[in-house]
Design a protein around this nucleic acid. Structure first.
Length: 589
DNA sequence: TCTACAGGCGCG
DNA sequence: AAAGCGCGCCTGTAGA
């Protein structure tokens, strides 16, 4: 086959009632076009050249079908996610941003369609037979999500390639596009595989903390007990503990003049009601957020399947929808439990954000403080700040924009010790508080301030501005400054994490499958016999792996972290040490 | 009766 | 303790 005839891209979209596959070569010329039945496309789609990239409107809409049919995609371009990056990136000249076509620069309709919200990944795999309750006048529900007609998809793909070519730093943006898309694949895969979850361990924790699972509407024994102690201390056997305004009035009656019922404020008062009340709130939180109802809804079949939303945060972090994947209490982590014959490889990055800041600012002093040790210890060792605890809150304050309290007071010391790193976040804050857009290391940009924000600023600068106008303008400028200050760091950290995940995903795919009798059946047809990522949260991952591959997986996790560092920051001397563990409980199967 | 919002708290 | 960034989920209440 000649080079020109090689399949580089496999574009998938709909036409009429069919699914259409279009293969493109490196020059984006069409090599082949094929039409497949809509129900069987995932099965019938012939295996592409494994080096080909799939191109589709929205991974959450297409990939679950492929996974269910037993196919893994090595690489893709998720047009919805990449559109969001390219339309805003300051690395792309405005005229070439993906929301404008050259001949119709003002065409906003195209823009809106590709800006549609993601389809809910859980609905994409749900059976379509469910009749709509109010579907009386046979109007089909308005199509949700981005376009997926083959012509729209091809056109958007070509626009995105044009935008990349026109970028001031195409290399970085291509890296971001690839990493973002790999993340989309992984999110679908992790949802399909699920987190191996021990119902027994979870129930054991609930029972030990709350008491036996209640039948009917009653509260569990331990909750009732603590509630009684609170009401005794309040001197009111009928006191309502679950209504914030009523609880506040009860507290006022016994002389506790708190202005909220938050844990940190109540803890300031010395009164016999405080301890049982805080305990009550803790128990109720566990029960309502991750109690038996959560177990029944989210951990069926021994797998927790959260819905990940890649790119769901403006900074590029993932969000989640359903199940609370981003909020699993640490106390419940023991319920994550490998299948028999399998183990968990768990890793998180120590101080990811300040390390990223050191690298992107080229701050050799901060990189030196970080190298080979706890970064905060390194700051202390350099003599600029006295204790580890202070170094930590100072660094968080610098990245978040603290101005008051201990944190704000300590930031100037960091500014003296690490002028380049602090200069980068300070500059990002100045850009933000004057309304501008900031950009991450690989090219994801924040939105510039909107017209409403500018009106507030203009009003405050006008001749008849009130003190309130000026205060509001100061506050909204400060809010934006803190947002953009954090955006560059949080966003670049998210890019590092995506690069880590994408590389690790590739390394895991190279490991051999295990025999079928050793499979983890609940992981589904694709992952029951292969080591696979099953959890990701900003800077930590969990891999579910056959026991015999534990060491190989741990090695891959470490190696991919090193490669991510070099991919983003080249030879800059920064390291990203992992806290890496092979789960011990798995040994007992 | 239904929806929107605020308070509170879990995670990084 | 929060402060200072980014999230999602649950509850009760206020408002339509």
């Amino acid at each position: 086959m000649t080079a020109a005839g090689e399949v580089r891209w496999r574009v998938v979209g709909r036409e009429g009632g069919s699914v259409v596959l279009v293969d493109l070569d490196a020059g984006l010329d069409e090599v082949r076009r094929e039409r497949v039945g809509p129900d069987r496309w995932a099965v019938e789609a012939p295996a592409a050249d494994p080096s080909a990239r799939w191109v589709w409107s929205d991974t959450a809409r297409w990939y679950p079908d492929l996974l269910a049919a037993g196919s893994v995609v090595a690489r893709c371009q998720d047009l919805r996610l990449c559109h969001a990056i390219l339309r805003a990136s300051t690395l792309v000249p405005p005229a070439a941003r993906a929301d404008r076509s050259a001949d119709a620069p003002g065409d906003a309709s195209r823009d809106e369609r590709w800006d549609a919200a993601p389809v809910d990944a859980s609905s994409a795999v749900a059976p379509a037979g469910e009749p709509a309750l109010f579907d009386l006048d046979d109007a089909p529900a308005a199509p949700v999500g981005v376009p997926d007609g083959i012509d729209d998809v091809l056109a958007e793909f070509r626009r995105q390639q044009d935008a990349l070519r026109a970028a001031s730093d195409p290399g970085r943006l291509r890296l971001l596009i690839a990493a973002e898309s790999a993340g989309a694949l992984l999110a679908a895969e992790m949802q399909a595989a699920g987190v191996p979850w021990s119902l027994d361990v979870h129930e054991g924790i609930l029972e030990a903390t709350l008491g036996a699972r209640p039948t009917g509407g009653a509260a569990p024994a331990r909750v009732q007990e603590v509630a009684r102690a609170v009401r005794d201390a309040l001197g009111d056997p009928a006191a309502s503990l679950d209504s914030q305004p009523k609880l506040l009035r009860s507290l006022h009656r016994i002389g506790i003049h708190a202005r909220s019922t938050s844990r940190w404020e109540l803890a300031e008062y010395d009164h016999p009601v405080i301890a049982p009340l805080l305990e009550y709130k803790k128990l109720m939180r566990l029960m309502s957020a991750n109690g038996w109802a959560w177990l029944d809804e989210w951990a069926r079949g021994g797998r927790f399947r959260p819905v990940y939303v890649p790119g769901g945060v403006v900074t590029g972090r993932w969000a989640s929808s359903g199940g609370g994947a981003l909020q699993l209490p640490r106390a419940l982590r023991p319920a994550v439990h490998a299948d028999p014959g399998w183990t968990l490889v768990v890793a998180d990055v120590a101080q990811l954000e300040p390390r990223v800041l050191a690298a992107m600012s080229g701050d050799l002093a901060l990189a030196e403080a970080a190298r080979g040790r706890d970064l905060y210890d390194g700051i202390v060792a350099s003599g600029s700040i006295a204790t580890r605890a202070e170094a930590k809150i100072a660094m968080l304050g610098a990245m978040y924009g603290a101005t008051t309290g201990d944190s704000g007071r300590l930031v100037p010391a960091l500014r003296r010790a690490y002028p380049r790193a602090m200069g980068l976040v300070d500059a990002a804050a100045r850009t933000g508080d004057s309304g501008g857009a900031v950009t991450t290391w690989l090219g994801r940009s924040s939105a510039p301030a909107g017209s409403e924000w500018h009106e507030v600023q203009a009003r405050a600068g006008g001749p008849d501005a009130s003190d309130a106008d000026r205060a509001q303008a100061r506050r909204s400028a400060g809010d934006r400054g803190r947002f953009t200050r954090n955006f560059v760091v949080q966003g670049t950290a998210a890019e590092w994490a995506l690069a880590w995940l994408a590389d690790l995903r590739g390394l895991l795919a190279e490991l051999p499958a295990v025999p079928v009798e050793q499979g983890a059946e609940a992981s589904g047809p694709v992952f029951s016999r292969r080591a696979h990522l099953c959890f990701f949260l900003h800077d930590e991952i969990i891999v579910h792996a056959p026991l015999a591959q534990a060491e190989a997986v741990a090695d891959a996790v470490a190696r991919s972290a090193e490669r991510a560092a070099r991919l983003l920051f080249g030879g800059f001397p920064i390291d990203f040490p992992l806290d890496l563990r092979i789960s011990i409980d798995a040994a007992k199967g």
